[in-house]
Design a protein around this nucleic acid. Structure first.
Lengths: 231, 231, 231, 231
DNA sequence: TATGAATGAGGCTTCATTCAT
DNA sequence: TATGAATGAAGCCTCATTCAT
């Protein structure tokens, strides 16, 4: 508490520590505000003044945290992408067959789409970024795409998913999910989780292999697939 | 047939006719060029100079055909919407049960998404338009959405489609389709028709009612809820 | 009417004659319309399109009658100036002492100010004209000014007007009169003539010499109203 | 007085104070420059570049102080109007009969007309302003007009002014005065005060009641005018 | 003579970014 | 670190004027 307190010993460091923390907090505050505005009004209609104003600071102050407007945009995007990368890693390293993983991925991705940082991923235009950052974004998008395709291909291979073109199927699924970022409103009738589980169910409904190979993995939901072998 | 041909009689009007035709052709040329550029680079990165340059005219010449940049954007959009409205009307008035209609709609909409004018519908940002035009766009989008929902609801009612939430299902389908406007490249591996029919098949795969009620449609959801009653 | 009619004899000329007349009429129509618009909205806010539109012709058609927008402005002004020059000449050559002439001038000028072509003289900005035309305008304005001063000086000399600075008095009078061009509305309560005679009376009221030298001219208003009681 | 003077105590605020002062000074500098240019060349011929150039700044810098070109025009006008409103209030609350007040008003107004800010009042075109600001200008003009009329009417009532139509007389006087704003040149032969007093004398010469009724001023329309003329 | 179309010139305004304080 | 002020770079739009028909 007093000058002798242990903390005081670190004092030469503390200011740095706490300053850095303060700085990071402000940085994040800027990003949160920016995401909100970018989503509400669109990147090009939002001026740095708008962002600053909503934060009760002045425009040049923003340059203490970011080097340019498009860097802010990029960081907004990165915030959302980070989460996606995390749950992809988690699912990827987790258990379950391909279909199960796909379901988990859909669920997680759908939920993410209902958040600001998730919507950023599909509503921001990468062409507003530096060439360099565009590459990063494209790589990330490809990563996501490949994950979807991999689960689909794996599923077809292990029999949990009906034969299909993984590429096209991935596009179909991704489209449905990305679209959430455009229509979902926090004020709407559905909770994020509800939407996510419905999508997980619905989007895999047509894919699940009702008549899996003998003892194939899965034996999905429906017992007695009935005769109607689909169409 | 010779110099005295009937057309020659109309010659006094020809200049008008042909001028008007020329005008309309130029207007359309402007729109085609604009759509292309807007899709390639994004509305805000395209200047009217860019558009004019690619047409080998000067910027102010554009104002002979349009009153403002956002009017051009709107007309680009309208071009695509017109087509959608047309095939919706056609399908709506055509035959087939709800599921069949839904398939036709998906097919047509998917094909449209592979064209420039179709992609316009989902890649342009309505907020770049006049408040008035925004209303028109919103109304059109609602029209499309309602059509999807109607077919789904009708299908559930007539038994051709498995019980499901039409609103959510419509979102899922629309998302998949709209997404085409973002990834489809004319240079890609698939033809527009191929993509469209695959989507029509895949997107309805999970919806089609495998075990329709004995005597044709018309014993919708209610009777014998059965176990499969989703949720 | 037929080939033998007297007019036919002149036929080689007639077309010219009538054409010229038609041309002049159109020219004047343009000017009338232009004056109106320039007064209503101000020269810079009126486009040649506005002028053409109100005449039900097209913009380039105007160039058949005038070489430029500022030429139109100049001709509008000239129309009004012509009238002023005329009545100045008339008054100048007419009879009466200096005070009488001054009154006549005020009356005529005031009336002119209530017309469109009169208002043009004081509401158009000469700086919108060619350097050359500006000179013409300045010369005309000087002409008017000199006339006022001359009558004043003459009046002081012949005793009909009280001693005063002719320059300043001319400015005062001209100001009052020019101002009419700004406030007078044809729809107002006063007729042009009424305004004019009131101004003629009022503006000379303070100038008329009540105690003229011996038998000087004018024994205005006060003592023994006499016959000269102005109208 | 010395470095420790009270002002020094406020030093922490000085930066703010001085900045604000600097800002205001610059704002006024812009206005002074703008008025000058607008009067010299006319509002439409002056570009913001011209204004900026003469101030040795760049065009967009002007937008730190004003929101638009027409706002600058309005503020120029307001600068002049403020002065008028002030001396009107002063005269109105001051002593003297109506004729005396009228003289004071004429004198002050005439002097004002010889300044840039005074000339602005009559040489700027209100139609260049926002609809909203046009209203303000019109209201101010009406205010001035009413003051002239009131003094005239009061003077007629209290007998200090000869019977006359206050409306018309006000127009005549205002015209003379406003005209000063068009012809007066600082480089000319007359000082502002000289012009003003001559005008005050001359314009009221014809109005002053030479032979007021024996007892008490005028026996105009109102029977028993009493001394308490009006108000 | 009249027109539709086109153009050159230019003006206002916006905004991301920098800089001195 | 934060700010007021300034700037450079554009962009949209307007309009008088010209030209081919």
């Amino acid at each position: 508490m007093d000058a002798q307190s242990p903390e005081t010993n670190l004092s030469p460091w503390m200011p740095f520590e706490s300053r850095r923390r303060a700085r990071d907090e402000k940085r994040e505050a800027v990003l949160r505000t920016a995401v909100r505005l970018f989503l509400e009004q669109g990147y090009h209609r939002v001026t740095l003044n708008d962002v600053a104003e909503r934060l009760n600071i002045t425009k040049p102050a923003l340059y203490n945290y970011f080097r340019s407007k498009d860097e802010i945009l990029f960081e907004c995007w990165a915030l959302g992408q980070e989460i996606v990368d995390e749950f992809i890693a988690e699912i990827d390293n987790g258990g379950g067959n391909a279909l199960a993983k796909l379901r988990k991925l859909i669920q997680a991705y759908a939920e993410q789409m209902t958040t600001d940082s998730g919507a950023s991923l599909v509503r921001f235009d990468a062409r507003d970024l530096t060439a360099e950052n565009q590459k990063i974004v494209r790589a990330a998008k490809k990563r996501i795409d490949r994950t979807f395709r991999k689960y689909l291909a794996d599923g077809v291979a292990d029999g949990s998913i009906k034969p299909c073109d993984p590429k096209l199927a991935a596009f179909a699924i991704a489209g449905s999910l990305n679209w959430i970022g455009h229509w979902y409103q926090r004020a709407g009738a559905w909770s994020a989780e509800a939407v996510a589980s419905r999508f997980a169910a619905q989007l895999t409904e047509g894919l699940a292999n009702d008549r899996p190979s003998k003892r194939g993995p899965g034996t999905p939901k429906k017992s007695r697939p009935a005769k109607g072998g689909r169409k």
